[in-house]
Design a protein around this nucleic acid. Structure first.
Length: 325
RNA sequence: GACGGGGUAGCCAAGCGGUCAGGCGCGGGUUUGCAAAACCCGAGACGCAGGUUCGAAUCCUGCCCCCGCCU
């Protein structure tokens, strides 16, 4: 049994998590034990599920849904602090090695392409914590000024960076100013063993339907309350907005209800009716669109990776894994 | 029937004689230190028919349609 890893990726709502668990559960049938494997464990590759307290909105798998298959990298960070790819990669590598040491197959499963790439292709970068003081200072500059500044102190990075992207400009400057040296040239350090990458493909219409059904379910499961709780635990509206999608939209909604600009006013969590009628509302439709766009962006990311084996149904994935092992 | 307002891309909406509105949606893309974030590019239009003009979404004439209001 040589070291190997399986990656399962795909757009949001495509059913990746379920597939990962199913594969792990069917591991014997796929011939794992016969080849010396002791089983399989899942590592989440999701930039939002790493946060504690973000469950309903991220579609975090429940204990019950795991069906005994161990999952890693869920709830490893506080939403109050920024979590970055760098940290993700370090934790993921640790988890992968632990799993391999047990003689088990790691299944990296998630929709954050950047995180997956960081692990699989290995982008090596030292960590620099965000410096809020410096950021507020930089935020005062115009985008153009930020770019000029970067060009002066690190022309190499300036050459390839998106000069319209304030966020990236600020982060680049932060790193340079904190480490006192230019951004080091990219070093790739890919995992040294075979990796099977499976992509879950869905027809556009079907995916839309899945997204819509899931969104409805989440709202019923108390997503509004989840966001309210996060807010009450001290997260700023700005921070919630940064999480995007559900968190962004519900935060906006709660904010307006709090500002008394909305006819629906909820002072305490208990006052939020169990079934605020979001369905068919402007709120619902917009959020739905937003999630569809997100799915599209994910696909844009995945499309360029030629190593991905795209599948439509589980049996195809099983076949691939069996052969791979 | 009279008067008033209006008909601009799938939707909302500016322009009212001479590069371009814009937003949403749609399509494509970037991403190598916040990535569910952030950012970029593209297609598509002036209700219809004439006229005036070097040039018309924009002015004129006629017609069609919608909304309001009055009888």
């Amino acid at each position: 049994m040589a070291k190997k890893m399986v990656v399962i990726l795909g757009p949001t709502a495509s059913g990746k998590s379920t597939l990962a668990v199913n594969i792990a559960k069917k591991f014997s049938a796929l011939g794992g034990p016969a080849l010396g494997w002791n089983g399989a464990e899942v590592i989440s590759a999701d930039s939002r599920q790493v946060y504690k307290g973000m469950d309903v909105g991220t579609g975090k798998i429940t204990k019950k849904e795991m069906r005994g298959v161990p999952h890693h990298l869920l709830d490893v960070a506080s939403p109050k602090r920024i979590f970055t790819v760098t940290q993700y990669r370090a934790l993921a590598l640790k988890a992968i090695n632990k799993i391999l040491k047990k003689g088990k197959l790691p299944i990296l499963c998630g929709g954050t392409g950047f995180y997956i790439q960081a692990v699989v292709d290995g982008i090596v970068i030292p960590a620099v914590k965000p410096d809020w003081k410096l950021r507020t200072k930089l935020e005062r500059l115009t985008t153009e000024q930020l770019f000029e500044k970067l060009k002066k102190i690190d022309p190499k990075r300036a050459k390839i960076i998106d000069r319209n992207n304030r966020r990236r400009l600020v982060r680049a400057l932060e790193i340079i100013l904190k480490t006192k040296k230019p951004i080091p040239a990219l070093k790739k350090n890919p995992l040294p063993y075979p990796i099977l990458i499976i992509g879950v493909k869905k027809e556009k219409g079907e995916l839309k339907k899945l997204i819509s059904e899931r969104l409805e379910k989440r709202l019923k499961q108390g997503m509004v309350e989840e966001v309210k709780k996060l807010r009450e635990s001290g997260l700023s509206w700005e921070r919630l907005k940064g999480f995007g999608l559900e968190y962004r939209y519900i935060a906006r909604y709660l904010k307006t209800t709090k500002d008394f600009r909305n006819p629906l006013r909820f002072e305490r969590i208990s006052e939020i009716p169990k079934s605020v009628n979001f369905e068919k509302s402007d709120f619902f439709n917009r959020l739905q669109k937003e999630i569809e766009h997100y799915a599209k962006r994910q696909m844009t990311w995945f499309k360029r990776d030629q190593r991905i084996h795209w599948i439509k149904k589980q049996p195809e994935a099983e076949k691939l894994v069996k052969k791979f092992l």
